[in-house]
């Protein structure tokens, strides 16, 4: 089992806020999706992020707002355990974020090796 991170992105929010009922329905969709992953023992952690944020660049430059250059912003993430990227992708297919015009980026946790003789180091290269 390897670790994968799903990054949820949405276009920066403009216009009307959704109603309380709409919000509740969305929340339930998220909950049942995550529960299904947890039931397979593949859940590791998830969070939603507040839209406010700052970005820090070298030389102590702090800019307001989440990362400005992208037209979309990261709204949350989920870390899962999966056997392969394909396996993780399959889980992502049913992610509620896709229903509301967002997207999901799926990325494997990178292994960093200092020792070129280690088995994992060799595996990575194969």
């Amino acid at each position: 089992m390897k670790e994968y991170m799903m990054i949820f992105r949405n276009e920066k929010m403009e216009g009307e806020m959704p109603s309380a009922e709409q919000m509740q329905m969305v929340m339930q969709q998220w909950q049942s999706w995550i529960t299904a992953i947890a039931n397979q023992g593949k859940y590791s952690g998830t969070n939603r992020l507040l839209p406010e944020g700052k970005t820090i660049k070298p030389n102590n430059i702090v800019t307001d707002g989440p990362y400005m250059e992208a037209k979309e912003m990261v709204g949350g993430y989920l870390v899962v355990k999966a056997n392969s990227l394909a396996d993780a992708l399959e889980m992502a297919q049913t992610c509620p974020n896709l229903v509301y015009g967002g997207n999901v980026e799926v990325r494997a946790v990178m292994t960093i090796d200092n020792d070129p003789n280690s088995p994992s180091f060799l595996q990575e290269k194969n």
Binding site: M1, E3, S44, K81, D115, N117, P119, S120
Partner: peptide, 17 residues
Amino acid sequence: FRSAKNKAIDIIRKNKF
């Protein structure tokens, strides 16, 4: 020692959870 270290790294990766 190197070989044991690499085995230990693999075990840590597998047992993170």
